[in-house]
């Protein structure tokens, strides 16, 4: 069973990396970009289990380690 965890900065948290990427694209002439926020995708392979159980257990590891909820949100996507 496979899953992806998307870790993104909360609204209102400054993202200097996103700003730098945005600035770089603007300088390269891509003027249609309004804003860029950079996050992480974490690919996880896990034991087969009931989907709801997988969601619960993945949420637990997000809270515990994968995301810092002071500044980040997370979203879990289970493949298939």
């Amino acid at each position: 069973m496979k899953a992806k965890v998307f870790v993104t900065l909360k609204n209102g948290v400054l993202d200097p990396q996103g700003k730098a990427a945005h600035g770089s694209l603007e300088r390269a002439g891509y003027s249609f970009i309004k804003d860029i926020r950079i996050g992480k995708v974490i690919e996880i392979e896990l034991d087969d289990m009931d989907r709801t159980e997988a969601e619960d257990r993945l949420a637990e590891i997000c809270e515990k380690l994968l995301a810092n909820t002071v500044m980040e949100n997370y979203r879990v996507e289970i493949d298939g």
């Binding site: 400054l14 200097p16 990396q17 810092n68 002071v70």
Partner: peptide, 17 residues
């Protein structure tokens, strides 16, 4: 210590990277 929640908040990437 912030990650361990012994202290509140978080230390993020410097403003100027």
């Amino acid at each position: 210590l912030t990650e361990s929640r012994l202290l509140p908040g978080v230390l993020m990437r410097n403003r100027d990277l």
